[in-house]
């Protein structure tokens, strides 16, 4: 029994060691997200472009953007520069739905024409990445993946990958754009907007819906979100 126990425990330890060694290759969500991210970039109506050193992904209609900023010191026209990753979208529908910009929390920036929601993202490292050779958006994504893996997630209800922008805000894209009718989705936490006077059901061009989600631990729950999905096919 003693020998059996030793062999058994040794086997399990070796197997765990093998998992640790192969950890990156076993990261199916991280690796899968990169593949699908590259695919999404290819089907976007407007090719992602660089502006003032930032990478910008524009949705159809150009009124919604997902920005990977080069530097937190980078100041763009909507003053979203303090974030490394952020969503930028038209403020008009929100104003129309009752938004009082003064009541928005500090982390949501209301500029003249746009609202910016984002997160700081180990910015110095990101800045370095921008200057590395082979500076492509996919390459940059991989770097983000490697350095901030926890920011990348999988949303099983929509079969989406996503980048967590903090406070319940996400930029999501379809794992398989061929089978999914929501290829990219801007996901907002409605509460700060509701607190700032917005009637979430009356935001033009946005959906207010209950979405089943799982937190990172896998705990299932349903929450309301403000969504802006795009079908790119």
């Amino acid at each position: 029994m003693k020998k059996f126990s030793i062999v058994l425990i040794s086997f399990v330890l070796i197997a765990f060691a093998a998992i640790a060694v192969q950890y990156d290759s076993l990261d199916v969500i991280g690796n899968g997200s990169l593949v699908s991210f590259e695919k999404i970039l290819k089907i976007l109506p407007k090719t992602p472009f660089k502006q003032n050193g930032d990478w910008i992904i524009e949705s159809p209609g150009n009124k919604t953007k997902f920005v990977l900023a080069k530097s937190e010191n980078q100041v763009n026209e909507n003053a979203g520069g303090q974030y490394a990753l952020y969503l930028e979208f038209d403020i008009a529908p929100f104003l129309k739905a009752g938004l009082n910009p003064d009541k928005l929390p500090e982390n949501i920036i209301a500029a003249k024409n746009a609202i910016v929601i984002g997160r700081e993202f180990k910015i110095k490292k990101l800045e370095t990445m921008f200057t590395e050779p082979g500076d492509t958006l996919a390459y940059l994504y991989q770097k983000i993946l490697n350095s901030n893996r926890s920011a990348i997630g999988y949303h099983s209800a929509l079969d989406h990958y996503g980048i967590d922008l903090g406070n319940g805000n996400m930029f999501e894209w379809a794992k398989d754009s061929k089978t999914n009718d929501k290829d990219i989705v801007f996901v907002l936490n409605p509460q700060p907007f509701i607190d700032a006077g917005v009637n979430p059901e009356k935001i033009d061009g946005w959906l207010y819906a209950k979405v089943p989600i799982m937190d990172a631990k896998g705990k299932k729950t349903e929450v309301f979100k403000i969504l802006k999905p795009f079908n790119l096919d």
């Binding site: 076993l26 969500i29 893996r149 997630g153 799982m214 937190d215 990172a216 631990k217 896998g218």
Partner: peptide
């Protein structure tokens, strides 16, 4: 985390 590293 199961929703981040499901295979692991």
């Amino acid at each position: 985390l199961p929703m981040s590293y499901p295979l692991v």
